[in-house]
Amino acid sequence: MIKKKTIIAVLALAGALFAGPAFAQEEEAGGHGAVHIDKQSWTFAGIFGTYDEHQLQRGFQVFREVCANCHGARLMAFRNLSEPGGPGFSEEQVKALAAEYQIADDTVDGGMRPGIPADRWPSPFASDQEARDANGGAIPPDFSVLAKARGVTDAFPFWAFNYFTGYQEGGVDYIRALLVGYHDEPPEGFELPAGRFYNDYFPGHAISMAPPLFDGAVDYVEAEGEAAVPETVDQYARDVSAFMMWMAEPHLVSRKETGFRVLLFLVVFAGLMWATKTRIWKGIEH
């Protein structure tokens, strides 16, 4: 009797604990909740996931050559590109890269100077207004944490599993889908406003961004010993999505490594505490 009640209580409370946040999460995708987005296999998914250095380097190339013309990344510093757990560029590479960019600095003559690794990624537009004017009234969102500012909706009851699998890749799944989701012509009967483009996955389907990628748009610099990577929209989309995930969560790898140590410690400690507690309570009827 007691046992059965306890089990019911545990189930009910576990339900409340996990269902509550899950319900909140279910709405996360906002307007594009109705569109199904295919989940991709990412190297950084799951508890053992880590970033693929080569993929991040390719993604950075796509970002730099294509996206960065309109999108900023104001929270990413050049130095981040050579930090552990990232794309793994060398410090010299990063220094040379930074020097190619002009950084606004009030303390120098002319207000501009070449970048150094400590500088943040310069924004392509001086102000929001300038960005809006250059892009038909829409501000290209900053990329710094964009991969975490988007999500996908899982149908009931599948979202509940995300708490146990640690699924955090909704943002990149959405971004990749968006990048491959363009159509030259909207479906019949769809009124596409002027200056907009039809996209399967964008909320409302009418997106201000022209299709940014096309096959062969970026000529990948292959790392040594790396197999040739197809230069297709699909591959670009994957790579730049992965890069954006790293940009949003640069400490993912070290965070998980610490996590394993902490969990291992807690399990061992819990076992010892249980033994100690049991030993102390031995002989007490309770």
Partner: peptide, 16 residues
């Protein structure tokens, strides 16, 4: 045995 358990638990707690 009892002492060892308590000492081990205490040591692990201190490390934590």
């Amino acid at each position: 045995r009892r002492d060892f358990l308590y000492v081990a638990t205490g040591a692990v707690a201190a490390v934590g």
